[in-house]
C-alpha cells in the first residue's frame, strides 16, 4: 500500500519586504496508513507551513508531494478543494465551528460541499457524533458548549467524509488539562480502533506523547524523527 503522505525535497519560500524567508528548506518524509504522527518544533520552525502544504491549503515552492499515491504538488485551487473535501479532515486550535449553527449542522458541513444527499448527511453526522461521545449535543449551538465539547464536535466534523488523513493543528491549545486529555484520548482511540491516519501539530511534549511517532522541525528542516516507545505499545 502506498504512503498516505510522501514528500521529497519540499521547499517553501515566502517573499517578505523584498527578501526571501525560507520556511521549509527541503523536507523528505512519508506517512504510512494508520500512523499517528506528532509534528513538533518551536514557532518559526516551519511546522505550520508543513501542515498547510500537507493539508493542501498551500502549495510548495519546490519539491514533490504525493498524497495517497498521486502527485498533488501543482494542483490548483478547486482541485485542491476537492481533495480537502473528500480525503482530508481538519481539527483546529480554535475549533472553527459556525456560530448560531447547531452542532449537527456543523458536523454536516463538509458533506454539503462533497455533495452527499441530505438524508445520508444526517445519518453519517449522528454516527460520527456518537463515535466521539457528543451525540446528545446535536441541537446545541457552539456558545452552549464547553471548549472540550466544541473540539469533539469539530473532530466529528473532520470524520464525516471518511478521510485518509486527519490534520490536527494544536487541537488542545485552547483547552484545560482535563479536556486536553479527553480530546487526545479520542484521537488516540480513533487511530487505534478505526485505523485513521492522524498528523498532529503541537509544541507541547505531553500532547505529542499520545502519538506513536514524533517528527521534530527546526529552521525549516526535520531534526529528529523517532518512534514514541513509551506509548506505542
Amino acid at each position: 500500500m502506498s504512503a498516505v503522505v510522501e514528500v521529497r525535497g519540499l521547499r517553501k519560500i515566502y517573499p517578505l519586504d523584498g527578501n526571501e524567508v525560507i520556511a521549509l528548506a527541503g523536507i523528505d518524509v512519508a506517512l504510512a496508513p494508520g500512523e499517528f504522527v506528532a509534528v513538533m518544533g518551536p514557532s518559526g520552525s516551519g511546522k505550520s507551513t508543513f501542515m498547510q502544504i500537507v493539508g493542501l491549503l498551500d502549495s510548495p515552492s519546490a519539491g514533490t508531494y504525493r498524497f495517497e499515491g498521486n502527485d498533488v504538488s501543482t494542483l490548483h485551487g478547486d482541485e485542491r478543494a476537492d481533495i480537502r473535501s473528500r480525503r482530508l479532515g481538519f481539527v483546529f486550535q480554535s475549533y472553527n465551528l459556525l456560530s448560531r449553527t447547531s452542532a449537527l449542522e456543523n458536523v454536516e458541513l463538509p458533506m454539503v460541499y462533497a455533495g452527499v444527499p441530505e438524508s445520508r448527511r444526517r445519518q453519517i453526522a449522528v454516527e460520527k457524533m456518537e463515535l466521539v461521545g457528543v451525540a446528545h449535543l446535536q441541537k446545541h449551538n457552539p456558545n452552549q458548549m464547553s471548549g472540550g465539547q466544541q473540539q469533539r464536535v469539530a473532530i466529528a466534523r473532520s470524520l464525516v467524509n471518511d478521510p485518509g488523513l486527519i490534520l490536527a493543528d494544536e487541537p488542545t491549545g485552547a483547552l484545560d488539562t482535563k479536556s486536553s486529555a479527553d480530546v487526545m484520548q479520542i484521537l488516540q482511540r480513533l487511530n487505534r480502533e478505526q485505523g485513521i491516519t492522524i498528523m498532529l501539530v503541537t509544541h507541547e511534549p505531553e500532547v505529542a506523547a499520545y502519538a506513536r511517532r514524533v517528527v521534530t522541525f527546526r529552521d525549516g528542516r526535520i531534526v529528529s524523527d523517532a518512534q514514541n516507545v513509551d506509548r506505542a505499545a
Binding site: G55, L57, G77, D78, A81, D82, R84, S85, R86, F90, N96, L98, L109, P110, Y113, A114, R157
Partner: peptide, 12 residues
C-alpha cells in the same frame, strides 16, 4: 476560511 478548508470552491 473554514468553508474553503472543508472543500468549498471559490465559485461556491
Amino acid at each position: 476560511g473554514l468553508r474553503m478548508a472543508v472543500g468549498a470552491h471559490a465559485k461556491t
